[in-house]
């Protein structure tokens, strides 16, 4: 048993003013980002499972995202990339 990501990367992007990128197959559906997000715009997608069999996170309202980075910092599996618009 070797713990490698056997599934191909599945990159999911949400872009409005700011951008969230999820490496979905690395997600273990732990809910910590959902719990930590101050804007309550993340949730686990209970309709789907990722390559590992977990319900992955999805963003419900990217327009409300402030790119604070809290979700990414709390994520144990480095699933989330956060880019802030500075133009």
């Amino acid at each position: 048993m070797v713990f490698t990501a056997k599934t191909a990367p599945l990159i999911v992007e949400y872009a409005a003013k700011h951008r969230l990128t999820f490496d979905e197959n690395m997600c273990k559906g732990c809910d910590l980002c959902v719990w930590a997000c101050p804007k309550n715009i993340l949730k686990l997608d209970l309709e789907r499972v990722n390559g590992k069999g977990y319900n992955p996170i999805v963003c419900m309202d990217i327009d409300a995202c402030t790119a604070c980075g809290i979700c990414a910092r709390i994520c144990p599996d480095s699933v989330i990339k956060v880019e802030r618009d500075i133009s």
């Binding site: 713990f3 490698t4 990501a5 700011h18 951008r19 490496d23 690395m26 790119a67 604070c68 980075g69 990414a72 910092r73 144990p76 599996d77 480095s78 989330i80 990339k81 956060v82 880019e83 802030r84 618009d85 500075i86 133009s87």
Partner: peptide, 19 residues
Amino acid sequence: MSKIVYEKSRGLSETQLSY
């Protein structure tokens, strides 16, 4: 123009964590 607020550190390998 955008700035990366957070992305996976290059100090971590590609291996999926076993936790």
